[in-house]
Each structure stands twice: as structure tokens, then as C-alpha cells.
């Protein structure tokens, strides 16, 4: 039931409680309760994906790889949390390979990001080195493609 609900919401974020209750054949209060619970448990989060570039708002994004000295007892989590709490940071991942963390940072311009990296990120205790890649263009984010949607070429009636 929870699974079914989440799956439906993932592909149809605009459905209201009434619609969902019809799909799941449950009453509306029940559905509302389950959604509340899923939100409380941090399983269901809502957020819009906006292609800002398209309406001319230029934001600058950078993908930063970070080498970190892990801390005894807490590993990478402590420094990762410190990084994640910055508002400028959009995503933080622990990764395998040469670097330890991958951080996606958002800013109004190049300078802002450069100063965030040199003043805030690189100076954090435990951070050994960073390498910054500026993102030049976004093609797909969170499963959403930023290309024109494909048209429906189907005949209006077919058997």
C-alpha cells in the first residue's frame, strides 16, 4: 500500500488526495494519514525541479570533489554534515575512487562559488583538498529531461 502510493506520487506529483483515494480504493482520511506519516518519517519529500536557465535566471553550479580525512568513530559523516548544512550546497554524496565526497554547490556567479570553496569548504577541518568543476549546462536532473517533450503522434482513433 505504502509502496503503491509512493510509486503513484513519484510519477504523478499533481494528484490530490481525492484522486489518490480513488486509485487505491481507500477513503480520503486514510490516504491523508498515510501521506502525513510518510512525510514525518522523511520518506516522502516534495520539491519542484525548475529549469531556471530557461527563464533567464542565471545561476551558477559547480561540482566539487573533496578529499577528506575521516574521523575516528564517525567516518565521513561529520564533515559531510557540516558541508551539507550550507544553503549553497544542493547535494552531497560519499563516493568511491580518488575523492571522498562530491558536492554540488549553487551560486549567483562564479566569484561567489569560488569564494565559498576557498573560504568555507576548503578551510573545514578534515578537508584535505578540493577540485572544482563548473557546470556549463544542465541536460537532465533528478530524472527530469530538460529537452523539449516528445509529441504524441498517435492517431486519435485506433483499434
Amino acid at each position: 500500500m505504502e509502496n503503491e502510493l509512493l510509486q503513484i506520487l513519484e510519477s504523478n506529483p499533481n494528484l490530490n488526495i481525492k484522486d489518490i483515494s480513488k486509485i487505491l480504493n481507500r477513503n480520503e482520511d486514510e490516504v491523508r494519514e498515510i501521506i502525513k506519516e510518510l512525510e514525518k518519517r522523511n520518506i516522502l519529500k516534495r520539491r519542484y525541479i525548475i529549469n531556471w536557465e530557461k527563464i533567464g535566471r542565471d545561476r551558477v553550479y559547480a561540482l566539487i570533489k573533496v578529499k577528506v580525512s575521516p574521523e575516528r568513530g564517525r567516518g565521513y559523516d561529520k564533515v559531510a554534515e557540516r558541508i551539507a548544512r550550507f544553503n549553497e550546497v544542493r547535494a552531497v554524496y560519499l563516493i568511491s575512487g580518488e575523492y571522498d565526497l562530491e558536492v554540488i554547490v549553487e551560486g549567483n556567479n562564479l566569484k561567489e562559488i569560488a569564494s565559498f570553496v576557498s573560504n568555507k569548504l576548503a578551510t573545514l577541518e578534515g578537508v584535505r583538498s578540493t577540485v572544482t568543476h563548473f557546470i556549463l549546462k544542465k541536460y537532465k536532473e533528478n530524472g527530469e529531461i530538460f529537452f523539449e517533450e516528445e509529441k504524441d503522434y498517435r492517431l486519435k482513433i485506433s483499434f
Partner: peptide, 11 residues
């Protein structure tokens, strides 16, 4: 501007 529910192929 028809919404067609007459289509025999997947969307």
C-alpha cells in the same frame, strides 16, 4: 483539442 480515449496504442 480533443482528448482521445479512443486510442489503441500505449501513450
Amino acid at each position: 483539442d480533443v482528448i482521445s480515449l479512443g486510442v489503441g496504442e500505449p501513450d
